[in-house]
Simulated assay, not measured.
Amino acid sequence: MIKNTFLFCLILVATSCSKPDPNEKLKIKSKDKIENDFKDIDEDSVYDSGVSDRFKKSFINSNGLFFDDFETLPKHTSPKSHEGRENLIRYSYHSVVEKENWGPKNNSVEIHKEDDSNYLKLKLSPGQEHKKIKGYRTELTIQHGNPNQEEEWYEWRFMIPKDYKLDEENIGREVTIVQYHYVKPKGQSRVLVGPTINFTYLEQYGKNILILRHGIKGQDNAKYEGFDWSIVALNDNIKKGKWYTVRANIKWSLNNQGYIAVWLNGEPFTPFNGVNNKVFGTNIYNTIENTFKFGYYRYWDNSTPTSIYFDYIVKTRSFEDLTGRKPTS
């Protein structure tokens, strides 16, 4: 929900974990009501898309369909042992700092039980800097499952808990909570900076903000120098302790035929373009499938632990596979 134009300008000068260009312009159009397959909901009500209820199993990993309800802790699978099964998903603990024998330690990744439900809790504690790939991280990675980079539909449910607290110097700094990251072929030089789709969380000016960037950001003195991603959506009314359901429709493309459309708790998050809420642009630079990383990733440390919860993650090829309904348009 975009309420304050002045807030947009202030956000652009905030220090970001993804280091966006401070001169980057926030191009957010008005969110006119568009036809979609979601019911209207009250802002303070608990939103349930019904998607997670469709799948009876708590874990499904088949060709074109992945679903994890986090009844059990995800297990790391090495690239070598996954060879020949690229049409299926594999989990990786590569971006989790606190791990031992490719499993979590010190409660960095754990199943949190509450009433009759299980949630995945990822906790980033002070000093958890990744020595190899840099940054402070507690991210799980989903890889593979779409080797031909077909159109995809994702849905996940997350919550920033009420006890999330930042040091004063970290107010105004973004933290990545979900990113779709390119994969660089071995032996090749880096040509991009950061992911091509990035969801970040920011606390500033008394607001809790969810930000979405889309596009490719080129490395200096490399092939895509001068290319830049942009902020395409923003909600400055995120509440701690409240669950949010994100649905994303993505078409991967090496050119401007690529797009992303996102809904937040059943309402369009990406802006209306006159026809629908798709934002177009290049979102890959090679033919290797992007990874999906979820959890905290930032360039700065914090003196107290911060946690994030995920209820489920779904990855499918079509709207009908996701919802069980045919699209209306």
Results as ranks from 00 to 15, higher is better:
residue 5 T to N: 15
residue 9 C to I: 15
residue 19 K to C: 12
residue 33 K to H: 07
residue 34 I to V: 07
residue 35 E to A: 12
residue 37 D to P: 06
residue 38 F to Q: 00
residue 39 K to Y: 11
residue 40 D to R: 13
residue 42 D to L: 08
residue 43 E to H: 06
residue 45 S to G: 06
residue 48 D to I: 07
residue 53 D to T: 13
residue 54 R to Y: 01
residue 59 F to M: 05
residue 67 F to W: 01
residue 70 F to A: 00
residue 70 F to W: 00
residue 72 T to F: 13
residue 84 G to R: 05
residue 87 N to R: 12
residue 88 L to T: 10
residue 91 Y to M: 00
residue 91 Y to R: 04
residue 92 S to A: 09
residue 92 S to I: 06
residue 93 Y to D: 05
residue 97 V to N: 01
residue 99 K to E: 03
residue 103 G to W: 07
residue 107 N to H: 09
residue 108 S to R: 01
residue 108 S to M: 02
residue 124 L to N: 04
residue 125 S to M: 04
residue 134 K to M: 04
residue 136 Y to A: 00
residue 140 L to S: 10
residue 146 N to E: 02
residue 149 Q to N: 15
residue 162 K to E: 10
residue 163 D to T: 08
residue 167 D to P: 02
residue 167 D to K: 04
residue 170 N to G: 09
residue 178 V to P: 08
residue 181 H to Y: 10
residue 189 S to T: 12
residue 196 T to F: 06
residue 198 N to D: 13
residue 199 F to S: 11
residue 199 F to N: 09
residue 201 Y to N: 05
residue 204 Q to M: 14
residue 206 G to Q: 02
residue 210 L to S: 03
residue 213 R to F: 14
residue 217 K to L: 11
residue 218 G to T: 01
residue 224 Y to V: 07
residue 224 Y to T: 08
residue 235 N to E: 00
residue 239 K to E: 04
residue 240 K to G: 01
residue 241 G to M: 02
residue 241 G to R: 03
residue 244 Y to S: 05
residue 250 I to T: 05
residue 250 I to V: 09
residue 262 V to P: 08
residue 271 P to V: 00
residue 273 N to W: 06
residue 274 G to V: 09
residue 274 G to P: 04
residue 291 T to Q: 13
residue 291 T to N: 11
residue 292 F to W: 03
residue 297 Y to S: 01
residue 297 Y to N: 07
residue 303 S to W: 02
residue 306 T to F: 05
residue 310 F to N: 00
residue 314 V to T: 08
